[in-house]
Amino acid sequence: MRENVFITGANGWIGKKLLEKLLAKQFNITALIRKKNAESFMLEEKHNNLQFIEGDLEKVEEWKHGLNGVDTLIHLAAKVHTYSKSEKEATAFYAINFESTKKIFEKAEKYGVKKGIFISSVAVDDLTTEKEGKIEYAYASSKIKAERFLIDFKKSSNMSIQIIRPVTLYGGQDKGNFRRLYKLTRFNFFPIIGEGENLKSVIYYEDFAESLVNIMQEPISSTKEVLTIGAETISMNEIAQQFKKSNKRMIIVKLPVTPLRVILKIINIVNKTFSLKINRQLNTLIQSNTYEYEENLKYLPSKITFFRNINFKNEYIGNEPKK
């Protein structure tokens, strides 16, 4: 008997790839999307084991019936890839990433869902006590709040719950740091701040989707409560060299850190908002973001996609994410 799977965020960047991989394995799938379109109608027509339902994450009562008869819930949808700039925006992070997650899992348990998988973020690993709760860290704060709720909820629930923290994802229609970094190559210039030896833990988006399918099929009792999923760790120098393969005219320039910080302080006096934005981008180029994922490599596909093998021109050009 085929397992029944419910996915939120099925029309997103990772969700589409996850959907593709689950369909290939013949699972019965109910996929929550905000609004049906030509693509969703075509997929339903092609696959008799797929059903899309329309719904808003914040209005669970309107689509909760879709959880009836479900074996596994994969909660992928979230508000991501932005720093909150106001109290209103911070509130939206908590509403979607925490409050909606809470309601979805509570309803799932009532409908007898056996297993729940929540996609969190390694941003919570970098969240200090001083940062938690501040407006600009609302994304990470909302995710850690959801994690804490689920860990506590699991103690009194009949549902098995797994929390997944992916490292930096790249490829396809990503809207994150890698696409922003690659956009710099359009100017035939790529800056490295400092020596370029700072490290990043990364995973190709298709490999992450495959790992979710593999984790889903594992008994949760045999896994850790929180799994960090990554594939490799690379340096900023390696990132620059790989980008250069896609643009031979690109010049890699190493810039000293201290003068840039001084310039940033001057900009901060004139325009604090702009300074904050530049500072975050600067930190992306300077900081190391590494995480312990080695013990979870077993969940990745047998053939991993390595960063050094990606042609970023083919990967990103003409494959822009939807607004």
Rank of each mutant, 00 (worst) to 15 (best):
L169E: 04
Y94C: 03
K175D: 09
A108N: 02
L18C: 02
E136A: 10
K59T: 08
E197F: 14
E45V: 06
F187N: 14
S86G: 04
K313P: 13
L184A: 11
H75A: 07
V5N: 03
L57F: 01
G318W: 05
R180T: 08
A90F: 09
K103V: 01
E54Y: 05
F149I: 00
D56P: 09
P219E: 08
F208D: 12
S40A: 07
K115N: 05
T284P: 02
P301S: 05
K272I: 13
P301Q: 05
E99A: 10
Y299F: 12
V257Q: 09
A31Q: 00
S100T: 01
P219Q: 07
E295K: 15
A146M: 02
Y182D: 00
N28T: 08
Y139T: 00
P259H: 11
S157V: 04
A146R: 01
F27W: 05
L255H: 05
F306L: 09
F118A: 08
Y182T: 05
Y83T: 11
L150S: 02
F243C: 01
S211M: 09
E232G: 04
L19P: 13
A77Q: 10
V122R: 08
L199C: 11
S275I: 02
Y205D: 07
K254F: 09
V113A: 02
E132A: 15
A38Y: 14
K298H: 10
K244V: 00
Y94P: 13
H81T: 08
V80S: 09
G112R: 07
G69E: 02
T30C: 06
F153W: 14
K131M: 10
R261L: 15
T128R: 03
T305F: 02
S141M: 08
T273C: 07
P301K: 01
H75I: 11
P191I: 03
D71A: 04
K134W: 13
K183T: 13
H81A: 10
S141L: 05
Q173M: 15
I193L: 15
N37F: 12
E61N: 06
Y111D: 00
